[in-house]
Design a protein around this nucleic acid. Structure first.
Lengths: 367, 367
DNA sequence: ATGAAAGCGCTAACAA
DNA sequence: TTGTTAGCGCTTTCAT
């Protein structure tokens, strides 16, 4: 890497002191027209640009924002980071990105690194908001930070989907469509804040609509073959008519597995996903889901950070129910109950015989 | 942001000079056991960490790699960046990410910025390899860089899919499945290197298999409603039996549009996509596509950069045909030709009447 | 209006 | 073995 021209080179070439060059270029002090001219010429000739490193050392500001997320292979984070990055760039900041792969140690290390690099602020998603070494570090160092996709602990700012409310909304949608017996498909839901919020919100929503408590289908790993698990699950809970999958990929996987089991979606089983990924609307049936706006959340987090840095008034967080919306899709269909005696009788035949299942439902359908 | 302890503070506390602290911490010179001890204690007490900014100024190295890609909303780039980032992190480097939104000005600006920040190397995808201001800049400044997803100009290194060969492979797959009349669906294909490569490779592949030259369906924008365009296209080219979409999203959109036109995929029309996104295998029909490995490419680009920086032997580029593989899927079906007289007669009924189309094909199918 | 010089945190050459 | 100091590129007093 060839040595770039420094301010000294410019000064020399322009025949003046470095201070003059600095003043001219930064418009931070007086300068005669001829000096300005000479400096500008020298700058052009040398194609001079300030070294941000020198600047940073002197100003103890780096115009860099750190961003720590689990993985941008997850499009939710990718989009959020993209949104955050754009806002930073517009404000003349660059973004240092570190992905932690859902690893707590990496998380702490990443934050340490970013502090060492003296980023002016950090946007981050942590594994556990209530127990994060990195977060403690940030607080003790008074580094501005803004949480992203974490449930905000009291008094803190987090740009996140209200998982609890969104999941409750799913329950209410199922209820509106006459589904009474539902299941929740989640991954690792006991160790992840977000998954737990979704399950609890869903369960509470079901309860408040007098639906049966959702049955839980927990998968260990997304690479698992879902089909046998789903089969066993449906055998065990034969009257389930709707499944809430904790994200869209798992919803798609569920549809696929159902198909392999000759269970038609939505005729025999309704599915609702979470996130609102783009492909959900490009497939058949389209995916009913909770649509979220990762870009907007990322952008918001950036705006919060920038306002903390320059002391301007922070952007307002969206109200809880603005962080998501239900998006209808072909994977959800209203259920026409066979009998309605007090809701005690299953709205769905309890036989697990697929043929029967299909036939019954076909009968139930409007046409 | 509270002021962190500096090396001076540590020296003071340990009762020694700054050089000693530096030597101890960097293990870069002699130090008595007791001095080492005193320093370590002071470091612990102050929770001292080096300021990378100070270090960078002095060493003119930042342990930072710049990464410039169009957009990480495109999962291909997101995955590549993730792969690149992981390799950097493992080597103790951080990554500055700038997305250009497919904008050439942004691209140049991004590169200038990264140079100002004195990144030690840059991984980048440019719009036009043969005419890039940013690339010129990098060359004149002798900044190590590695191209990603660009067709490598002679003598340069680029971690990319061989679009031309991959597209030719698609033609040969169509041929193996007895398709003779095909179409190419592309976006902005004349101004983008990659799209052009894919079209040309496909066209050449068709030619070499004595298929008719592919008909071109160019869309202006992914948000376009494809359905009417596809309808007009198929009306104009009634004997087309297979479409190669220039990426998987467009392939999915094509399937959806076909469905709206009562054209069954793959019965009436086979579709092959490009990229190999995850959802391609989760939907029905599964998507036949060119599978690529963005992570591996990103990781490779990082390794190249790192080797340029430390002067070690660079990783070997994968051979052209290792950069992709054809992945079969339900969206492609073999065609059973109606007549085979010298391949001059369409393998597909030329009527554009959908019903007829379906009926004809149903007759043709094995069962 | 301009320049000389101090100092940001660090490393490395040189002295002791 | 240890400390002093120059200097990396820049901004900012403080003289002039």
């Amino acid at each position: 890497m060839v040595q770039s021209a420094t301010i000294k080179d410019v000064a020399q070439r322009a025949g003046c002191g470095v201070a003059t060059v600095s003043r001219v270029l930064n418009q931070t002090g007086p300068a005669s027209a001829k000096m300005r001219e000479k400096v500008m010429v020298a700058v052009k000739e040398l194609d001079f640009h300030f070294s941000e490193v020198g600047r940073s050392l002197q100003s103890s500001t780096t115009r860099t924002i750190g961003c720590v997320v689990p993985s941008i292979e997850n499009p939710v984070y990718a989009d959020a980071v993209q949104g955050a990055q754009e806002v930073c760039l517009d404000a003349g900041y660059q973004m240092l990105l570190i992905c932690t792969n859902y690893n707590a140690e990496m998380e702490t290390h990443a934050i340490r690194t970013l502090i060492s690099k003296q980023v002016d602020g950090i946007i981050l998603t942590v594994g556990d908001v209530n127990n994060s070494e990195g977060l403690d570090l940030l607080r003790s160092r008074k580094v501005p930070y803004s949480l992203l996709y974490n449930t905000a602990p009291e008094g803190q700012i987090s740009w996140a989907v209200d998982d609890h409310a969104a999941a409750a909304k799913v329950a209410s949608v199922f209820h509106d469509n006459k589904h009474k017996h539902t299941g929740f498909l989640g991954l690792d839901f006991l160790s992840s804040d977000r998954a737990r919020q979704r399950f609890e919100g869903f369960a509470e929503g079901c309860a408040s609509h007098n639906m049966t408590p959702p049955a839980l289908l927990e998968v260990d790993d997304d690479s698992d073959d879902l089909t046998p698990r789903l089969e066993a699950f449906l055998k065990q809970h034969p009257n389930i008519t709707g499944i809430f999958a904790s994200n869209d990929y798992r919803a798609l996987a569920t549809i696929r597995s159902a198909r392999q089991l000759s269970i038609d979606v939505p005729r025999d089983l309704s599915i609702i996903g979470f996130d609102g990924i783009k492909v959900g609307q490009m497939i058949d049936p389209t995916l009913a889901t909770i649509a979220t706006e990762p870009r907007a959340l990322g952008a918001g987090a950036s705006k919060t950070i920038l306002s903390m840095i320059d002391g301007s008034t922070p952007p307002e967080l969206p109200s809880m129910d603005q962080t998501f919306s239900f998006r209808d899709g072909g994977s959800l269909t209203p259920l026409v109950a066979e009998s309605e005696d007090d809701g005690k009788v299953a709205a769905f035949p309890s036989s697990n015989d697929q043929t029967h299942r299909q036939v019954k439902i076909q009968q139930e359908r409007p046409q």
